[in-house]
């Protein structure tokens, strides 16, 4: 792997992210809308279970949503780069395809972890009490989940050549991933078929892992669905698989 190349791929993404105010604003606004409009509304309907309010319950899911959108957007910007030619500048350079994929996945991870951290810092508003170690734990999980989702997004991006496919990706990949991640309702309460789909979703394990940190004392319906070891192992294994698949796809030549 070429570290200068990884560095500059990440630096480019970061620079563009900072420059593009609207992207930052909508990236922060989306979770806030879901948390305070949807979450607050639903709280009227869903009573607290096992000491966890509905708003507290969806908080890990909202962090997951922040990561999902921003990692996926960052990765499918590859399609944009293909359409506008910049991808060729990268592909013709003497860097391994693994470097390109890792660089892109790290770009997505850094940008989305940053946003997730901004949302995470709202925890006092929800009546949550998190200590320094909880916050560090949550950030580490965010980094891992972001990397995994970004790598997944890269694999998706290799299937498309034109940005016209954006709305298809939005409707048929990103939105289902969000709703089938245990973000808004516990996976254990889903019907069999949907529960199966949720188990295939990388985001599910990220949201689940965050539940351990955000509401460690939860029990009953709103408690996590898998063990934390399972969560972390699945996230890491999936990341490796996605990076590998993405690299293979990039190595293909016409």
């Amino acid at each position: 792997m070429e570290f200068n190349a990884i560095y500059v791929i990440v630096a480019r993404e970061f620079k563009k992210f900072v420059r593009e105010r609207s992207r930052l604003v909508s990236a922060i606004a989306r979770p806030l809308v879901w948390l305070f409009l949807v979450g607050a509304g639903m709280s009227r309907l869903v009573p607290p279970v096992g000491g966890v309010s509905y708003m507290q319950f969806i908080f890990p899911g909202i962090l997951g949503m922040t990561i999902l959108f921003s990692s996926m957007f960052s990765s499918i910007s590859i399609i944009w780069d293909k359409e506008f030619g910049f991808m060729k500048e990268i592909l013709v350079a003497p860097v391994s395809r693994l470097t390109i994929v890792v660089g892109k996945a790290l770009s997505g991870s850094i940008v989305s972890t940053l946003q997730a951290v901004i949302v995470l810092l709202l925890f006092p508003l929800l009546g949550l009490k998190l200590g320094a170690t909880d916050i560090i734990g949550a950030v580490i999980i965010c980094v891992l989940v972001s990397f995994s989702v970004s790598a997944f997004g890269i694999v998706i991006a290799t299937f498309y050549e034109s940005y016209e496919s954006f709305s298809a990706i939005m409707n048929f990949i990103i939105m289902p991933m969000f709703f089938l991640s245990g973000a808004m309702y516990p996976v254990k309460l889903l019907p069999e078929a949907l529960r199966f789909a949720a188990k295939l979703n990388p985001l599910t394990y990220g949201v689940d892992a965050l539940k351990y940190v955000i509401s460690p004392l939860a029990h009953g319906a709103m408690s996590p669905d898998f063990s934390i070891v399972t969560d972390l192992a699945v996230i890491v294994v999936l990341s490796v698989i996605f990076v590998f698949a993405g690299t293979k796809a990039f190595e293909r030549r016409g």
Partner: peptide
Amino acid sequence: VFQDTTLDKDLTAEENLLFHAYLYN
């Protein structure tokens, strides 16, 4: 230099060149 431009239009001229310099180590 490809037939169709492969610059990143949202970066400055210098940034495009620096990107290249890092990429080529």
